[in-house]
């Protein structure tokens, strides 16, 4: 297994190499100039040229790329063009809200979706099954911002129970953090409840038709034991894959949720950087998120061994 892990990790190197080139080229070839944005509405061409020189943006693109690559290989992702803060510091600062939001959303999604999926499969064709599947379609089809506004209106404005926006910072303590993340987690988690419930149901239905399930039933095992111990474990591989992909999607795709709920996470950092053409931040975030995505995929692959003893690396 160690050999497999090392092999997979080695494969990360060329992937990241390609990522550096792609993200550098994409961020530079598009229209937009950070200096024009930085200097504001009425800057003259002369002022723009001076600032471009001061920030090293007048160098040829290959020179800029290799300079960035050299410092990246030393673990330094450079400085934001605007804040002049280290990109790594900005990413670290934004990572906490995003990671916590992702975890909350996924825990909520799994806790709700897996039982619902099992239930729907166990009662396939019944009213319960149809209700669960209809709920899944609704959850998947409702845009996160619509659900976000509804939740904020009901729980924030009408009932006054939860904040409608913001992230208080880890220093505010777990209760304040959970309060801030509850509504966004419910909003973004809805899609994953729908997805995981559907995948769980489909996978369970497949497993429930297997001979070993019939054997387990014939042995007189109680229905819950058959469902949760025998069937669910064997149906778990696609569900775990879905959860793993979901983590990746959530970590890198919470832009809308973070915007609606004003959470200063990776999504907002990325969008702000793109709007401002803050090249070092765009490059740094994409690089780090790509690495996280690759590592998450590796972890998901390794986790298959826990659920299916036939899988060995």
């Amino acid at each position: 297994m160690l050999r497999y892990i090392l092999k997979r990790l080695l494969m990360v190197v060329p992937v990241m190499g390609v990522v550096t080139v792609v993200v550098f080229v994409l961020s530079r070839v598009g229209p937009g100039d950070p200096v024009t944005i930085m200097l504001g509405e009425f800057a003259t061409a002369e002022q723009i040229a001076r600032t471009r020189t001061a920030l090293g943006l007048d160098l040829p693109l290959p020179a800029q790329y290799f300079a960035w690559l050299a410092q990246t290989l030393q673990g330094n992702l450079g400085l934001s063009l605007f804040t002049r803060k280290p990109v790594l510091e900005l990413i670290a600062q934004s990572a906490a809200p995003t990671v916590l939001l992702t975890l909350c959303a996924m825990v909520y999604a799994v806790l709700v979706a897996v039982p619902l999926g099992v239930l729907a499969a166990a009662r396939a064709g019944s009213l319960v099954d149809r209700a669960v599947m209809a709920g899944a379609v609704l959850g998947f089809s409702t845009p996160v911002f619509v659900l976000g506004y509804i939740l904020a209106y009901v729980f924030g404005l009408r009932l006054g129970l939860l904040p409608v926006q913001g992230f208080p910072g880890l220093e505010a303590g777990p209760v304040a953090v959970l309060r801030a993340l509850t509504l966004p987690a419910l909003a973004i988690g809805a899609t994953f409840v729908a997805l995981i419930a559907r995948v769980t149901r489909a996978s369970m239905l497949e497993v429930l038709n297997e001979d070993y399930i019939r054997t387990a039933r014939a042995k007189g095992l109680r229905r819950p034991v058959v469902l949760l111990v025998h069937a669910l474990k064997n149906a778990a591989v696609p569900v775990v894959t879905m959860i793993g992909i979901g983590f990746g999607i959530l970590l890198s795709g919470v832009v809308v949720t973070e915007s609606v709920f004003a959470i200063p996470g990776i999504g907002r950092l990325t969008v702000d950087a793109i709007f401002r053409r803050d090249f070092p931040v765009i490059q740094g975030v994409v690089l780090v998120m790509s690495a996280v995505y690759v590592l998450l995929n590796l972890l998901v692959d390794l986790s298959y061994m826990l659920f299916d003893p036939r899988i060995r690396y």
Binding site: C104, V107, Y108, L111, V112, P115, L116, L119, F155, L161, L162, V175, L178, R179, A180, L181, T182, A185, L186
Partner: peptide
């Protein structure tokens, strides 16, 4: 299922 759905919200509303 219902408890899980309410759980996170309940913790958040707690204080």
């Amino acid at each position: 299922t219902a408890l899980a759905a309410i759980g996170i919200a309940a913790i958040g509303v707690a204080a």
